[in-house]
Design a binder for these strands. Structure first.
Lengths: 233, 233
DNA sequence: ATTGCACTAAATGTATACAATTATGCAAGA
DNA sequence: TCTTGCATAATTGTATACATTTAGTGCAAT
């Protein structure tokens, strides 16, 4: 019998212990509860969550997959350090890949995805007027995930989600000015309209520039200095 | 007191049991011992290598990191399927990233790395004349790894190495014609010379086209059909 | 005061036992 | 013959015990 299975299913299920531990630690890292280079000890985390070391160990190894944790043999698991150079490189890489993503999305986006994208942009404009920063940040994340989904490439989508997670710790702070947030959403609108108009070259260029702008804004405000100083003591 | 440590150390050490299991399974996948979608059962592999399930489980989760294995909860670990679309996407992504890599390498390459690159190209020309396919394939891998190293970005290097591993199962067969192999090395030479001359734009374009050529050659010869048919039964 | 070494404590690495889940085979019924 | 249901086997998930490695402490020798 032809045994079918969805091989594109998410890696870490939320219902196993390992899945729950995975998401807990992941959120704690992204929300800044754990600092850079902080050691994540299996016993302590296991005790905190009421599970044994085994699912914790496996969750930590899954987190290494996302680049949020680094495991050193016989030493332990550490929260990945955010290096200034790495951030620069990631944005350069993302400038290319988000461009490619926008190009492919232009060719393959569905009506539903386009509608979701439009709704996202409109909603963000509303919240921008009200100064709702929390919602803006969330909508920004959402916009990019819609774009990743729309490109129709699991490979590219997975890659971009990984990078997105990696810089989210910083990006949340980067977007925390209403000026950049508003400008960012305008760029989203431009990308969306290029995609809707079927202009692949334009969409690619706009998405690429969107990344460069985000990075330059970050550098200008030197918002990741808070991380830098941790590395210097 | 300042406890220093090399955080760029390789993830999987070769001296722990998990490390050995990891490399064993990895080689078996790359060398084609395990077919696509083949199930990798913890007990069987553990018995074969004389270890318990624990290091096998962890090795499998590390392999998921490289994209060679997919783990489905409560079902098991399976060799990643090579989809035609994924290969197309990876080469498109690599076309961009190898270009970026060549650009950065132009700006940052060291004298030693450049010399290694030159030696590689000369040696490949020698083996091309003799028709030594094995050596050609190995030198091709080596050239790209030198390039990755020379770009001076751990982020980009790691990314490219991952993709490189992923398609190596196919690429070995792709290079198996002496014509493509020779053409490929000519492209390597052109990239190397552009880097040596400090022409970043040219190096980027050549490296990008090198990927496109490799992919088009593969499609032309339809060399991955052997994989495709496995998926259709 | 400093270095070196042994010893201790604590953490990770591995093996194994048990629990939960999934796959398989067979029999009963339509 | 095909399907359904249950019993059983096989496999993964988790907990725990033990082995190994590492970090740190304290004491002695210089």
């Amino acid at each position: 019998m032809n045994s079918e299975y969805d091989f594109n299913r998410e890696v870490s299920d939320k219902y196993s212990l390992r899945g729950r531990v995975f998401h807990k630690i992941r959120n704690d890292i992204l929300n800044g509860r754990y600092k850079e280079h902080e050691e994540l000890k299996e016993i302590r985390i296991g005790k905190e969550l009421g599970v044994s070391r085994t699912p914790v160990r496996e969750a930590l190894r899954q987190l290494e997959l996302e680049g949020l944790v680094q495991i050193i043999p016989n030493r332990g698991a550490f929260v990945t350090g955010i290096q200034e150079n790495d951030v620069r490189d990631i944005y350069a890489i993302r400038a290319l890949l988000e461009g490619l993503c926008a190009r492919w999305a232009t060719e393959r986006i569905t009506a539903e995805q386009l509608e979701a994208m439009e709704e996202n942009v409109y909603l963000a404009e509303f919240h921008a007027g009200k100064g709702h920063m929390e919602q803006m940040a969330e909508l920004d994340n959402q916009f990019h995930h819609i774009l990743y989904d729309a490109c129709g490439s699991k490979m590219l989508e997975h890659q971009l989600i990984d990078y997105h997670s990696y810089v989210m710790r910083i990006r949340r702070k980067t977007l925390s000015t209403i000026e950049r947030s508003t400008a960012s959403n305008k760029e989203h609108r431009a990308i969306m309209e290029a995609i809707r108009a079927g202009k692949a070259d334009l969409a690619e260029r706009l998405a690429s520039e969107h990344m460069k702008n985000a990075y330059e804004n970050m550098v200008k405000n030197r918002l990741y200095d808070i991380y830098k100083k941790d590395m210097e003591d």
